[in-house]
Design a protein around this nucleic acid. Structure first.
Length: 469
DNA sequence: GTGGGGGAG
DNA sequence: CGTTCTCCCCCAC
């Protein structure tokens, strides 16, 4: 991995990221009541992976060195960190790809699958095993993994992942999903009567979901539309935020029995789709009436197209989806999703299944931050030299601390903080200006002493820096 | 645009 | 920790 930045700048970015992460977690919990776990590194892959290190309500930073020269005895921490992961644990490498990679290094069909739970012979294939396998590289991987239907450049992509490289964007959450689907799995579903009954229930649940997710009830004449200057209409109006243009029915036929009587599970699905009938968008008609029409005019016909044989099938899963979201849905520059609303909706959905009233504990949302953090070898714990946990979970966040975890810096004195120079302020400004424009608006701060502009979360550290000069 | 593959959380 | 339920993106046709 080429060194894209100087060690000092890398250090600064990681420190900024750690700081921001702690600030965000602190405010999220104080203002919304949600705890969060964060990973901080230079890309999404690494941030995500390292975030798993310490799970509830904490944050972890992958510390430098991120690179090492070949004559260096010690490998860089990125490699050291990622090498010990089982291949299938890498985001972007799922079950299928992992099986192919295992088969390659094991030189056999990688049959291990079902359960070797008790065997103890865990032949887990690690990233290291694949990464160092003779002849391995982007081209070899492309050949192993590539094929019909496989995205081009998969070899290069996976090779990057195995080496801790990932250029995937960290995107904004959409406020309207591209698809809404409801599904159920079954131990046995092989009669048309039963199917009709299930389809009715799925259709009803889908309609309900469409209403809670896609219908906005602006009870107040608030600022929803582009121009609502004279909209004094407290008319508790409801309106669709998006219209799914397509409805899709998919099933998962239970795979036929093997000769030897074994069950080779398959997840293969088949599907048929049709235009979404417009009557489902009626906000006046009774739900059950709409469900009935949808069932008989759309879903049942779709099912017959999907399963031409009248019987003989046995479905293990049925799914009904509303897709192809029209207009408002495809807005790209959407702001972040309101996670409070997400949990609220989840709660509504879950409530109907909840038998007793457990103390509805707040969900934990995970954050992941690119850029930054701190470090250097050996934290105070010593066991994982490449990890530094910011663990002042119970402490209140203090703006005067330059780092979420002050002790790390103490060990190395001034080297841990950027050398004071006249460039540093523009450096900091550039960093976040170019990487997070949104923060400029409401969350920026200008130092009265030196004029540096920075996000407010960095204000405390900045003043400490002045004081320490 | 449709249907299937693969993956994330 | 494994399964279930969603949701997403890509590809070939």
């Amino acid at each position: 991995m080429p060194e894209a930045t100087s060690p000092d700048l890398l250090h600064l970015r990681l420190a900024l990221g750690s700081h921001l992460a702690h600030y965000l977690r602190t405010r999220l919990e104080a203002e919304k009541g949600y705890t969060a776990t964060v990973g901080i590194s230079t890309n999404k892959l690494l941030a995500k992976l390292v975030g798993n290190t310490y799970k509830p309500n904490s944050q972890t930073t992958l510390v430098p060195p991120y690179t090492s020269s070949e004559d260096d005895e010690n490998v860089d921490n990125v490699t050291a960190f990622i090498d010990d992961h089982e291949v299938g644990k890498i985001p972007g490498i799922g079950f299928k790809i992992a099986q192919k990679l295992r088969a390659h290094v094991l030189q056999r069909p990688a049959d291990f699958d079902a359960g070797l739970v008790y065997g103890g012979t865990k032949e887990t294939v690690l990233v290291r095993d694949v990464r160092t396998y003779p002849g391995i590289g982007p081209e070899t991987l492309e050949r192993i993994l590539g094929g019909p239907g496989v995205p081009h450049g998969i070899g290069t992509r996976v090779w990057g992942l195995l080496n801790g490289c990932d250029d995937a964007d960290v995107g904004q959450a959409r406020e309207i999903p591209r698809q809404i689907s409801i599904e159920d799995s079954y131990m046995r579903l092989d009669t048309l009567e039963a199917v009709a009954k299930e389809l009715r229930m799925l259709a009803k649940r889908l309609l309900e979901r469409m209403h809670t997710d896609l219908v906005e009830e602006d009870d107040d004449g608030h600022d929803h539309g582009p121009s609502d200057t004279a909209s004094i209409s407290p008319t508790a109006m409801k309106r669709w935020l998006a219209h799914p243009k397509t409805i899709r029915l998919s099933t998962r036929p239970r795979p036929p029995q093997n000769p030897d009587g074994s069950r080779n599970r398959s997840f293969a699905r088949i599907s048929k789709s049709a235009p979404m009938p417009t009557f489902v968008f009626s906000l006046k008609e009774d739900i059950d009436t709409v469900v009935d029409k949808l069932l008989h005019e759309t879903l049942l016909p779709l099912f017959r197209k999907l399963h031409l044989e009248k019987r003989g099938w046995n479905l293990s899963l049925v799914n009904v989806a509303a897709t192809n979201m029209a207009d408002a849905a495809s807005e790209k520059g959407g702001v972040g999703r309101d996670i409070g609303k997400m949990f609220k909706r989840q709660d509504e959905v879950l409530r109907q299944w909840r038998v007793d009233e457990e103390p509805a504990k707040a969900g934990e949302e995970s954050l992941m931050i690119e850029e930054h953090v701190q470090v250097e070898e050996g934290g105070s714990t010593g066991e994982e030299p490449w990890l530094e946990e910011a663990r002042q979970q119970r402490e209140e966040y203090r703006m005067d601390e330059p780092w979420p975890k002050g002790e790390v810096l103490e060990r190395h004195g001034s080297e841990d903080f950027p050398t004071p120079s006249q460039d540093i302020e523009s450096l900091v400004t550039d960093v976040w200006e170019s990487e997070d424009e949104d923060m400029m608006d409401e969350d920026s701060f200008r130092c009265e002493d030196c004029g540096a502009i920075m996000p407010t979360f960095a204000m405390g550290a900045h003043y400490r820096w002045h004081a320490q000069m």
